[in-house]
Design a protein around this nucleic acid. Structure first.
Lengths: 239, 239
DNA sequence: CGCGGTGTTGAGACCTGTCAAGACGTGTGG
DNA sequence: CCACACGTCTTGACAGGTCTCAACACCGCG
């Protein structure tokens, strides 16, 4: 159930059996929800955090003109609004990009963890700072990289994360976003997403079809992206 | 010395006298450094975190082509690399934008706080998630707002933060960045920064001169920026 | 007094956006 | 089973915001 989550954490630190048990015990409930729903609306008072088990979610901000900017994509194993535990409300929506299954973790149980498991607390603190590191890299993309490189960089990141979660196979993973939504991540219009995807295919870098990404030439893709996974903190270290 | 820091925290939560004492006791040393220095280089193993007392710093990422993207600006009162306590190394440089004074806080003392002051620990956890919230808003700017609005939004944010820190007076604050560096925050070239600043002045929104920002028409500026300070979490709440 | 960094201006190029139309696919209702 | 509607994808022409390059002004400082 939360195997992907444990794998994500154990990539960065050791999680003891007692800690694993505490995590499993923190889950109050499993829920399912369809695509294009708001799971956590911006501004709402929070008393739970959600652990994504299956499917894709996103953090999105709605703008005055009706456009959205997606500031983070979430895959299986991500604690999509763990920062809500500290913030008490969110500055963005959490929305589904596909049908999803997720675990509900009440904040009391998280608070309990912070009182009884100081190391696990630091691991979860780390996890929210890892989110911030990904935000920074996205800011670099949005501010300084042209569309093709931006997209290449995103797919490099997602491949690494999907491999950790165990949802990638053979440099390929499900990707339920439509082109408009991909554009909302990259800060470009749907029309330009389409052209950029064609350029990707023309260069034999990736193919996106049937809601699935296939990476054709990973070295070339990483080259175009100038991808350095350092910001994903893939090393196992005592936090 | 760390009054700005306490003010920043107390805007968001109550800090007891005992906690204040713990914070003050965590400071090992005060240091001073000139402008344009790397205070914390990317990738370095960390054993301290730095509390900015005076001056401006930034989180910056250097790109292949020699350009930089600044992902966050720091003012007096900011714990510039508190996330380094969880991450153990940074995915970006912390650089000075002016002469700075800062306090050095060893990680052992932070760890000590996490063991003896659970509430203060949550306050500091909150503080790193607030950083992330600011990152998200910058991502929105970089991805979805045109240059003028982007710049207006940045100055709205900085005014709020400087007022909290106590370094703003009468809608005006010191701003040591040169135009190139401002462009590195906004993801635009120095030439375009210059033109955007002229447009700002033409519209009587702000004036930037002698390394100081004066906001001429705050309502109009906030209007252009579509500025909503919700993402700065200005409400005092038990974290 | 000269030099380097910063700020300013203009002309032209380029990347991305806008608008509009049509193709395609899928689900629905008649 | 067909007709239709709707969302998504694709394509083309054109517009516009921002970049690049280059030159010059300005200024503090050695």
């Amino acid at each position: 159930m939360i195997e992907a989550h444990l794998r994500m954490l154990r990539t960065r630190d050791e999680i003891s059996p007692a800690e694993e048990k505490a995590i499993r015990g923190a889950v109050a409930e499993i829920r399912e929800i369809g695509p294009d729903k708001i799971v956590v609306p911006m501004g709402k008072d929070l008393s739970t955090s959600l652990l994504l088990i299956d499917g894709w979610m996103a953090r999105s901000k709605r703008l005055e003109d009706g456009n959205r900017q997606i500031s983070q994509l979430h895959i299986a194993g991500d604690f999509v609004d763990l920062h809500g535990f500290a913030l008490k409300r969110l500055d963005h929506d959490v929305v589904t990009m596909s049908r999803c299954r997720y675990a509900v973790v009440p904040h009391e149980r998280l608070r309990d963890i912070t009182e009884r498991f100081p190391h696990l607390t630091r691991v979860y603190w780390f996890s929210t700072t890892l989110d911030a590191a990904i935000h920074r890299e996205w800011a670099v993309s949005l501010g300084s990289r042209p569309a093709l490189q931006r997209m290449a960089h995103l797919f490099c990141e997602l491949l690494v994360r999907c491999e950790i979660a165990g949802t990638a196979s053979d440099r390929s993973f499900d990707f339920p976003l439509i082109q408009r939504e991909l554009g909302e991540c990259l800060g470009i219009t749907p029309v330009h997403v389409n052209r950029t995807l064609q350029e990707m295919r023309r260069r034999q870098l990736i193919v996106l079809e049937a809601r699935r990404v296939r990476i054709l030439d990973h070295d070339a893709l990483a080259g175009v992206a100038a991808f350095d996974p350092a910001y994903l903190y893939l090393e196992r270290k005592s936090r």
